[in-house]
Write a protein that binds this DNA or RNA. Structure first.
Lengths: 225, 225
DNA sequence: AACTACGTTTTGGTATACCAGATTTAATAT
DNA sequence: ATATTAAATCTGGTATACCAAAACGTAGTT
């Protein structure tokens, strides 16, 4: 085939889009754990050359979705319930640490903003607006990240959270945790307002996940299939 | 020049070596924050083509050492004392979390191994063997990572620790903290043996860094120049 | 003299070609 | 029949070439 060069009128790197698409397919199970990702095959399939495919694979490698082996095809990592639970556990560790820092460092204005997000959420919960809740929920957590006053921590958290976002939404829906989540937010907010770092950390960890229960839940899901 | 193709008889990707070399130059200050990293120039300088240079730059981008801008040269990020302190703070958060998990999850055999590493270190400290201390110090922490029973956490920690290793060694030498560090290890070990997660976490955080004092120290260093 | 418009240069994004390590397969010897 | 090895092939690593988007510089206009 005379494979015309793809005119790049987009302002975004091609590789980024490819990475996202592959990511989605991995998450959706179209590409399954253990499957080999052949660069040439993928290039042909997407109608691009190997170069952007390679970049996309590197990104997925960094995100731990695939495993890059020297001189071997990359393979999709097995994303078992256990793996997911482990990632959530790390997230809980970082989030609770952020909450602890935030409790010590947030100024009055930041606290007020956090409270206003929290109070705005109440109406959303009553209305049962799931998308709205997702949005405000994210804002609540992000306000705490920023309040921790550590840009590197913020980066790490946003990265991990983005990676886990699809699973998180799925879990939240299945567990229908909106109301409980909102109540837990209230406790965390209280600890931050009191400047009680230790308690903020503890409550945040409990809020993000009870890893054991999470694993139990996901195991059940797996058994259902 | 007729730039002969580099015969790749190494078993390691070229890009990895390039990344490490550039990393070292950035850390050493040969390449300074704000400097532009032109792919062609670097390729010519190292006598390789642009492709491995690109990969190396991506890696450095992931490591947050440089900033990749679309359609612009990558530039070296400013790595201020504050930045470093922030990374160490995140490290302390993850390490203390690992210590907490380890205290709850390590089995008797793992604890014994940890203790044996600790006791082996005592002689090294007395001998003033800095390299030996670095090695055993790493083993001590790694034993805790593994003891946390969360492979993802282990990955994150090893990655972050590797990234910070050059600075850590520098700091340890300047502060001559060997003996104090060893004593702190003793307290952490004790907490783990007692299964006291909270205390293990607290002591570990204190051990990794007192961020404020760390910043103070690095600010002084900067002022010296 | 200052500002705009256009052309040149620089530089990253992508495509294609080639090389070498790794795997597989087949042939040969025991 | 099995084991060992050598050839074929598959696949990632690297080199080179081309394109388009910025950045830069210059000329022309007001």
């Amino acid at each position: 085939m005379t494979a015309r060069h793809r005119t790049v009128s987009d302002d975004k790197p091609l590789a980024e889009g490819l990475a996202r698409q592959l990511e989605q397919e991995i998450i959706d199970g179209v590409i399954r754990p253990g499957d080999e990702l052949d660069e040439r095959r993928l290039a042909e399939r997407f109608g691009v050359s190997r170069t952007p495919i390679r970049e996309a694979l590197r990104r997925l490698g960094v995100e731990r979705l695939i495993e890059l082996r020297p001189r071997r095809s990359a393979i999709v990592r097995s994303l078992t319930a256990q793996n997911l639970a482990q990632m959530f556990e790390v997230l809980s560790g970082l989030e609770s640490f952020a909450a602890e820092c935030a409790a010590r460092r947030m100024n009055q204005q930041q606290i007020e903003q956090l409270r206003s997000i929290h109070e705005e959420t109440a109406a959303i919960v009553d209305a049962g607006d799931r998308d709205g809740f997702d949005r405000l929920n994210f804002q609540f957590h992000q306000a705490i990240y920023r309040g921790a006053g550590n840009p590197y921590l913020l980066e790490q958290l946003e990265g991990l959270r983005t990676k886990l976002a699809p699973y998180r939404r799925w879990l939240l829906r299945r567990l229908d945790r909106m109301r409980q989540s909102h109540n837990e937010h209230a406790v965390i907010l209280e600890a931050i307002e009191a400047g009680d770092g230790a308690r903020a950390a503890t409550e945040m960890r409990r809020h993000i996940c009870d890893p054991d229960r999470l694993v139990d839940f996901m195991m059940m899901e797996q058994a259902e299939r």
